[in-house]
Design a protein around this nucleic acid. Structure first.
Length: 189
DNA sequence: TTTAGGATGAACT
DNA sequence: GTTCATCCTAAAA
C-alpha cells in the first residue's frame, strides 16, 4: 500500500478536493497554530491562470519540483499565498490553500492580524491565512511533511462543493475550486 | 448591503 | 506601462 503522501503526485484538480479536511500546523517559537483546510483551488501548467503556464522561472520553480513542498508567492505588493505542490517532479502544478477553519492557537492568529475582530475573518482568504500563520517567502520550498509548517492528513471525507475559481481572469471556465459544504470559514470575495 | 478604489512591488509586455 | 491566484476601507445605494 502506498502512503497518503503519494496521492499528491496526481493532477492538481484531483489533489485539491482531497486536501479539504486536512490540518495545517504551524510552529512559531514553541507555540502552535492549527487550521483545518476548508477551501482549495487547483493550478496546472496546462492552465492559463497558473503561474506555471508559461514555464519555469525563478519565481515559480518550486511548483516544478517534487510534490509535498510549499510554494509561497508574493503578490499585489503586500500579500503572500501558499500552495501545496503536487504532480510528478518536473511537472508544474500546485493546490492553492484559500481558507482555513481556525482550530488551535486563535489568540496567536489574532496577534498576527491585529485589527481583525471576528474569528470568521481570521483565515477566510489565501493571503489572510498566510498572515495568521506567519507564512512568508522564507517557507517557499519548505517540505510540508515537517515542522515548522506541516500538513497533517485526515481520514474523514467532508461533503465537498465544486465551483469555478476566484480572482482569476484567464481560463475562468475550469471548475477547479473546492470547499467544504456549509462551512462558514470559506472565503467570501 | 453592494461597489469602487487604494495600497504596494515584482514580474511581465 | 500593465497585470497580478488580495485585502481593507469608505462611499454609495
Amino acid at each position: 500500500m502506498t502512503d497518503t503522501w503519494d496521492l499528491l503526485n496526481q493532477r492538481a484538480e484531483l489533489v485539491a478536493p482531497e486536501l479539504i479536511g486536512w490540518q495545517l500546523v504551524r510552529h512559531i517559537k514553541g507555540q502552535r497554530i492549527i487550521g483545518r483546510i476548508v477551501e482549495t483551488e487547483a493550478y496546472d501548467q496546462i492552465d492559463a491562470a497558473s503561474h506555471s503556464f508559461k514555464g519555469q522561472t525563478p519565481r515559480n520553480s518550486v511548483m516544478f519540483g517534487p510534490s509535498g513542498m510549499a510554494y509561497v508567492y508574493f503578490t499585489y505588493g503586500m500579500h503572500y499565498c501558499m500552495n501545496v505542490v503536487c504532480g510528478p517532479n518536473g511537472y508544474g502544478s500546485a493546490v492553492l490553500i484559500r481558507a482555513l477553519e481556525p482550530a488551535h492557537g486563535l489568540q496567536l492568529m489574532r496577534h498576527h492580524r491585529p485589527h481583525i475582530t471576528s474569528t470568521i475573518n481570521l483565515c477566510n482568504g489565501p493571503a489572510k491565512l498566510c498572515q495568521a500563520l506567519l507564512i512568508t517567502k522564507q517557507l517557499n520550498g519548505h517540505d510540508l511533511k515537517s515542522l515548522p509548517l506541516q500538513l497533517l492528513p485526515q481520514k474523514v471525507t467532508p461533503d465537498i462543493i465544486q465551483t469555478t475559481r476566484i480572482g482569476i481572469s484567464r481560463d475562468t471556465a475550469r471548475r477547479w475550486r473546492f470547499y467544504e459544504k456549509d462551512n462558514p470559514f470559506v472565503s467570501q470575495l
